[in-house]
Nucleic acid binder design. Structure first.
Length: 392
RNA sequence: GCGUCGGUCGGUUAGCGGCUAUACCAGGAGACUGUAAAUCUCCGGCCUUCGGGCAUCGGUGGUUCGAGUCCACCCCGGCGCA
């Protein structure tokens, strides 16, 4: 096993812990927010900017890099680190999320996090779309670039991930819709377990020495499924675990806790695709070590910035003549050099620097929120830290 | 002065006798959770008991069951000729 995980300190009254993941390409001090760089780039930022704002690792995507530029280019380039000039640990997601985003989510425009049980609507669920069809052996995708057909199986996803060459890989899974009925959640979960076994076996036979694999647990919003999945995946010989699938917003931290209790304590746990401030704090409290999420960079490109415990839309009329920083007191590059009025102007003028500056701020905000949680755990005042955040 | 083409939301514009007058941009607001996303949604004349109701296409008349659309005159603008 090429990855080393050590726990430095645990919360006395809850599941949270601080630790470190050591990879060939560097250390991740946990809990940590992993920045998403789907196509081997954190959108609108250079790797130096990503590093300077405090990020420790990036996560790219197998589906996207397979389509463009293709695994041969990734391999010839010497792997993801060299190709994108990222000096640090890297992850690749397996393409399993695209089974959802291009499948059940594609036609209905639904997210993986439902706002509450009242929002669940099984009538808008269908397991497939014209863009992604799941069967027992794998997923047939259409290319989002040119519509051509492509086939992912667990073995194929792992092969591509080996060629991309990240440090931490994810087993191929099926992410389902929060609107899927219980029966389908169970079906997708059972299939994900079979795929996990196949992913692991392929990986163990074919991996490069520096590469580790995380298995992904599923189970949607159902406690029995979540626990069952964590038990089964947790018993497999993975280097760490991803917690995937859909959630009830209000119940997410509970679901994460159910899973954490079943997973082996000595291996790292990554909460896939979760990254709103409160979700991060509750996730950490409930035993999650790493996170990734597109939200900080996506909402940045769309003009929103994290401040305090909420958000502002920089395009709002009131910021046009507001010459204060995005957030007073913030130490990020954007806040120490630019005003809301300037960034608002950049967005109105459709100048790309606006996206860059808000991305820097949002990533700094999120990365540092998680770092502060780590420090709080190490210093034994996590509860105070959490209450401080909640009172904002 | 004559001829000609045109005047529809802040701008550009569709509509060429019929039912709810288009679309894009600018403006206002909201959403975004393992990136289909520098994207998407909503608002934008007045009144409303939220079911709707009443307006509106430069102006005034007219033709017609019915006019942004056809006719007459007027106002304004572009172009051409004097």
């Amino acid at each position: 096993m090429s990855l080393k995980f050590t726990i430095e300190k645990k919360l006395s009254n809850n599941r949270g812990r601080a630790g470190r993941i050591e990879t060939k390409n560097g250390v991740i001090e946990t809990p940590a927010f992993i920045v998403v760089g789907t196509k081997a780039t954190v959108k609108s930022l250079t790797p130096e900017q990503v590093k300077d704002l405090g990020a420790q690792a990036v996560l790219a995507n197998t589906y996207h890099l397979y389509l463009q530029p293709g695994e041969e280019v990734m391999k010839k380039a010497g792997g993801l680190h060299k190709f994108m000039n990222w000096d640090g640990p890297t992850f690749t997601d397996s393409g399993g999320f695209q089974a959802f985003s291009l499948g059940a989510a594609f036609d209905n425009k639904v997210g993986k996090v439902a706002k509450g049980k009242d929002e669940i609507d099984e009538s808008i669920f269908s397991p497939h779309s014209a863009m992604a069809k799941v069967d027992e052996d794998g997923v047939t995708f259409k290319s989002i670039i040119d519509g051509s057909s492509h086939r992912f199986t667990p073995e194929r996803s792992m092969e591509i991930q080996h060629n991309i060459g990240a440090d931490i890989l994810f087993a191929f899974d099926e992410c389902t819709s929060p609107h899927a009925p219980y029966e389908y959640q169970k079906e997708a979960m059972d299939r994900t377990h079979r795929w996990a076994k196949r992913s692991l076996e392929y990986h163990q036979k074919n991996r490069s020495s520096h590469q580790s694999i995380f298995g992904i647990t599923q189970g949607g919003r159902h406690e029995d499924l979540r626990k069952e999945s964590a038990k089964i995946i947790g018993a497999m010989d993975f280097d760490g675990f991803g917690i995937g699938g859909s959630f009830d917003k209000e119940d997410m931290h509970n679901a994460v806790g159910w899973v954490a209790d079943e997973l082996p304590e000595g291996k790292p746990r990554h909460l896939l695709g979760i990254g709103e401030p409160l979700d991060l704090i509750l996730g950490i409290e409930n035993g999650m070590d790493t996170f990734d999420c597109v939200a900080p960079t996506r909402i940045a490109r769309n003009g929103a910035a994290y401040v305090g415990s909420g958000r502002i839309n920089i395009l709002n009329e009131q910021f046009g003549q507001d010459f204060s920083p995005i957030e007073t007191g913030c130490a990020c590059y954007a806040c120490t050099h630019y005003t809301r009025a300037y960034i608002s102007h950049l967005f109105r003028a459709k100048e790309i620097l606006g996206a860059t500056l808000l991305s820097i701020h949002n990533l700094y905000y999120i990365v540092n929120l998680v770092k502060r949680a780590r420090v709080a755990i190490l210093e034994g005042n996590f509860e105070k830290f959490k209450q401080g955040f909640l009172s904002l």
